[in-house]
Write a protein that binds this DNA or RNA. Structure first.
Lengths: 199, 199
DNA sequence: TGTACCGTTTAACGGTGTTAAATAATTTAG
DNA sequence: CTAAATTATTTAACACCGTTAAACGGTACA
């Protein structure tokens, strides 16, 4: 039954359209502007049809979150692969992280926003751990040959993540700093932590 | 007319009750649970009466934000006054900042959440600049006698703020780290930046 | 006593997420 | 090729949201 396949393909396309429409609406009017009826309008259906493709609104956000983590992991890998030395890799990866946050501002907001507590997220969304794993590995490599306990790596990782995520959060709502200042804060923080790792 | 005074006092009290009720509802059910009708229920009135005291829901959030900044500034001052040396003062102030964020988690969320872009906030809420000013001054003192340009102080300030705000944001939704890890990240970051300031 | 005023509530509007029932379209069976 | 069954889609409704206009009740003052 080839027609079955065609139907399935159409359904998959509609599912995709729903996600695209959602992201478009959010980019135009922010997360508050996103509603089931507006999504339906955008894909030229009525609202209840969306529930054939997603359990509820949260499921749409979750899927966008998942796609966000996949894209971020891809960007991080690309950044890493452009260098050989772990220190250079780490720096490039955090700069890629920064770029991702503003290139895909809406995705970043839903990924690290206040939707779901991250403890559950790791269970529901295994993809959410990919970016952390990628960076974690490079930190371990940088600490060679004296890799400390997991706790020590954890502290390094969270110090990095905090300063970058903090700077991103502040700039997301603020836009108070010049790009030069931000780059300065970023680079000094990154090189500072890297230096402290290498001892 | 003493009765006028009594009326005014009652009005002021109701205004205060609205804010208290709001915070209570948020503490019990999160920011999503806050609605005008629930506030009205809590103060044993109906919803429209709230508009006699606040222009709209945002005005209530703004007032809570204002109170948050005042309280934070108070905590920072107290922390500073417990020490003499600028380095010790700075460390104590950031630890106080951290404590405030979790002791008054809901206030912190509305203060540094995604409600209003901070550029406007400084105009509408002058109080929002107090905490930054307090910390800024200590940073300048710490840099003595070679105080750099405003840009340089700015970079120091934002580096501090980013790492602490980042760590707070992550832990607000995450609770993935142990308290010991968090304290470790905090202290190493703070002393690291302080050391880099003192050169 | 009548009237102006003030505090308060009721009712309504347009919006939200979500669900059940009704309808339209398509596939399947006879 | 028609009739039945299944599927796709919409309409209508529910309960909630922020907000506003109109109606209501009581109090103060002429």
């Amino acid at each position: 039954m080839a027609s079955k396949d065609r139907i399935l393909r159409l359904k998959e396309e509609t599912r995709c359209n729903i996600l695209d429409a959602s992201l478009k609406i959010v980019k135009e009017g922010g997360w508050d502007a996103l509603s089931m009826r507006k999504i339906a309008d955008e894909i030229e259906y009525t609202a209840p049809i969306i529930y054939e493709y997603f359990a509820n609104k949260d499921a749409i956000l979750m899927e966008l979150t998942r796609k966000g983590f996949l894209l971020l992991a891809k960007k991080l890998e690309e950044a890493r692969n452009r260098h050989r030395a772990p220190a250079k890799q780490l720096e490039a990866m955090w700069l890629a992280y920064w770029d991702f946050a503003f290139a895909e501002r809406e995705l970043y907001q839903v990924m690290y926003g206040v939707r779901v507590s991250c403890c559950e997220m790791a269970k529901i969304l295994p993809e959410s751990e990919r970016p952390m794993d990628l960076i974690w590995d490079v930190i371990v490599e940088l600490m060679l040959p004296h890799v400390g306990t997991e706790e020590e790596v954890c502290i390094k990782y969270y110090t990095f993540w905090s300063v970058i995520h903090g700077l991103i959060s502040i700039n997301m709502v603020n836009r108070g700093n010049t790009d030069e200042t931000n780059q300065e804060v970023l680079k000094t923080a990154i090189t500072g932590i890297i230096r402290s790792i290498k001892g």
